[in-house]
């Protein structure tokens, strides 16, 4: 760190002297000096680490006497052949679908309706932020209490309206739903503000024009607002996707991947192979695989979006 700070000061000083004395070179040097600190930290704390992980993935990694036996792509073949991996892939996909169905649209809907609310709008916007400030895992713990089938709040309340009792995390068919559901309650947090700002920046003329065309207020929401915020939705979706595909903390605290692997996802498998089974090589191979999957998906989405433009 110290080095980087010095480097930075150095940079500034050099940059200043240079611009004064050798103005002709400024275009060549300034961007580099501006970029340098970030380039370095990204290299050290991202690329070096992922390369290290790739390196580890090529070995039957021995933590005591690293790196152990070289196995080439053996680790990759091994996990691809493992039934558990495909269970994890399937679960990851189901989680993804469930999250889109249950969680992703929530902030969009919240923002859409919020944009129609005139009185105390700012107050509601603040209230929307509150559920999001609870640390994720504290929230998960809270939900775990509420799901408890012996004495949890949920079955108690649902029984009052004649529903249940449900097994929640004790029901193999409900586990995934129970893990995703808190996201619906928590809502969008900052995303709401984002969508809201996007909606507010749609020009009033568009609405007026639609109105003159005889569009009712409900229809306007669909045909004016939604198309105009698709870019925001896409950007959000990209982040959401990698978030869901890599989600770890909430599942881990809720079920540790159980029961009977019903909620085992790839990120958990990465952790499990490393810290439970001490198979660091396979774990690293899995991580790199996930990195590639998400990178490809992201690039594809941006391509699609570009074609749309």
């Amino acid at each position: 760190m110290g080095n980087q700070l010095e480097l930075k000061q150095d940079t500034v000083i050099r940059e200043q002297t240079q611009t004064r004395t050798r103005a002709t070179f400024k275009i060549r040097w300034t961007p580099i000096l501006f970029l340098l600190p970030s380039l370095i930290v990204f290299f050290v704390f991202k690329y070096y680490l992922i390369f290290d992980a790739i390196y580890i993935s090529l070995f039957n990694y021995d933590i005591v006497n690293p790196p152990g036996n070289f196995v080439g792509l053996g680790n990759y073949f091994e996990f691809l052949k493992s039934a558990t991996f495909w269970v994890a892939m399937k679960n990851t996909l189901i989680f993804f679908v469930l999250s889109v169905l249950i969680v992703f649209w929530v902030p969009i809907a919240q923002a859409l309706f919020l944009s129609q609310v005139k009185r105390w709008n700012a107050f509601y916007r603040v209230l929307y932020q509150i559920p999001g400030v609870l640390p994720v895992v504290a929230g998960v713990l809270l939900w775990k209490w509420m799901y408890n089938p012996d004495r949890g709040l949920f079955n108690y309340l649902l029984a009052k309206i004649g529903l249940g009792p449900y097994g929640w995390l004790n029901d193999l068919h409900m586990t995934k739903l129970a893990i995703v559901l808190p996201g619906f309650f928590t809502g969008g947090g900052i995303s709401v503000l984002l969508y809201y700002a996007a909606i507010k920046s749609i020009s009033a003329e568009l609405f007026e024009a639609a109105k003159i065309d005889g569009c009712g207020p409900w229809r306007r929401m669909v045909i004016i607002i939604l198309p105009n915020i698709t870019f925001v939705i896409l950007i959000q979706f990209v982040g959401f996707m990698s978030g869901v595909l890599l989600s770890f903390d909430n599942i881990f605290v809720m079920t540790q991947g159980g029961p009977a692997d019903a909620s085992l996802v790839v990120a958990l498998m990465i952790q499990r192979t490393a810290f439970v089974q001490s198979r660091f090589g396979i774990s690293a191979a899995l991580s790199f695989f996930m990195f590639i999957v998400i990178a490809v998906l992201t690039i594809v989405q941006f391509r699609l979006q570009k074609e749309d433009d």
Binding site: S38, V44, I50, D52, F288
Partner: peptide, 21 residues
């Protein structure tokens, strides 16, 4: 891309290399 690609690195997976670093 050099900067943005890093968003896709799973946090769990670099735990050990990061510690070694």
């Amino acid at each position: 891309m050099y900067f943005l690609m890093t968003i896709m690195i799973p946090g769990v997976s670099v735990l050990i290399p990061q510690y070694l670093l």
